[in-house]
């Protein structure tokens, strides 16, 4: 039996779709871990990112935490947290939150910092309070970048939650780890395919959120203003800004 057939056999076996260790339960667990960890990471990182971005104080931290986090192997962090805090849902959750913080913090900071100075001055001279400036001017303009950060944090968390099955967490990683131990490739592959599908689904969902919450004026999806803006702005020249390669391309990119 080829490896592909083993995968199909596992997925078409109805027993694998029911019970407390069935596929739906594992998907539910994986989604739960991801949502809880992402929400916690957001609650920590977003306000700090806003503050650093708005005041410009502590920018060093915001920039470097992102770079440093990339160099540290996530698998090692996971094991370290578990050895320090013990097995169980909470320690693993802590590890997932730690890994979710840097992308959100860095992108929130970068988004707010990226707002043009003249825009900020205009808002200030209209007499807006700092709070209103941040929430009504800077944040809406920064939103696509913030969402890009949430997107990569989500991928990081989904991916690490898979690995976390190794330290006895549930979720779709269980199929991969158990299948490996039982020499059952069908099971491993099923877990892998399902987790890949889940990651892609989350990513599409963020694309959708981006479309819904980002103001059409910011995303350039408003047909009339786009024409007006194109007439105003100079034609694209050299020096493409070196965007973060992990940041997804905004939809409707002018080619």
């Amino acid at each position: 039996m080829t490896l592909f057939n083993e995968l199909v056999a596992f997925l078409s076996e109805s027993a694998n779709w029911s019970g407390s260790r069935g596929i739906p339960v594992r998907i539910g667990e994986h989604v739960l871990y991801t949502v809880v960890a992402l929400a916690a990471a957001f609650a920590v990182a977003f306000p700090i990112g806003l503050l650093i971005g708005h005041t410009g104080r502590g920018a060093f931290l915001a920039i470097n935490i992102g770079n440093a986090a990339r160099a540290v192997p996530t698998f090692g962090v996971l094991i370290l947290v578990v050895l320090l805090a013990g097995l169980g849902f909470l320690p693993v959750l802590v590890a997932l939150v730690i890994l979710g913080i840097p992308p959100i913090l860095t992108s929130t900071y970068a988004g707010i910092r990226g707002v043009e100075g003249s825009t900020v001055i205009a808002a200030r001279s209209m007499g807006m309070t700092e709070r209103n400036m941040l929430l009504k001017v800077e944040l809406p303009i920064a939103l696509p970048t913030v969402i890009a950060g949430l997107r990569s944090a989500t991928l990081q968390i989904v991916s690490t939650a898979t690995i976390a099955a190794y330290v006895a967490l549930g979720g779709l990683g269980r199929f991969v780890i158990d299948g490996q131990q039982q020499r059952d490739y069908g099971k491993m592959a099923a877990g892998a395919v399902l987790v890949a599908a889940l990651a892609i689904a989350f990513d599409l969902l963020w694309g959708l959120v981006d479309r819904v919450v980002v103001s059409p004026g910011v995303s350039g999806r408003l047909p009339r203003t786009r024409r007006a803006r194109d007439a105003d702005s100079p034609p694209p020249t050299t020096g493409t800004t070196p965007t973060d390669p992990l940041t997804p391309e905004p939809a409707g990119r002018p080619t």
Partner: peptide
Amino acid sequence: IVALSSTFYTIPSLALFVIMPGLISTQI
């Protein structure tokens, strides 16, 4: 190309490691 590359980038590493043998029939 952009769509394909960002989809690949979305797949968790462990999943891609495990899917590989099924795609290119190598040993696990």
